[in-house]
Amino acid sequence: MEMEILKQLIADEFDEIDVDEQTGFYDDLGADWMDMLEMMFACEEEFEIEIGETRMKEIQTVGELVELIRQLSKA
């Protein structure tokens, strides 16, 4: 479920629908830090979690973000 919602958020942010867990935010989607901040805000609002910049800085791929969202949603 998290992956499907995240795909929608990525489509809104990057205008890209062809993504999977291996897709890299920086390498494949051409993201920069502002894009990642926008993703973070969107995820925090959508999943009602608090990610924070420190954790977000470690995220490289879509799969890593999905995993983080799952962990924080359980907590």
């Binding site: 809104d12 205008d15 502002m34 901040l37 926008e38 805000f41």
Partner: peptide
């Protein structure tokens, strides 16, 4: 700029 981008949001399609 950052606040407007993150809190209000961009026009769809606008990168910056």
């Amino acid at each position: 700029l950052t606040g407007a981008t993150l809190l209000v949001g961009r026009v769809p399609g606008v990168r910056r």
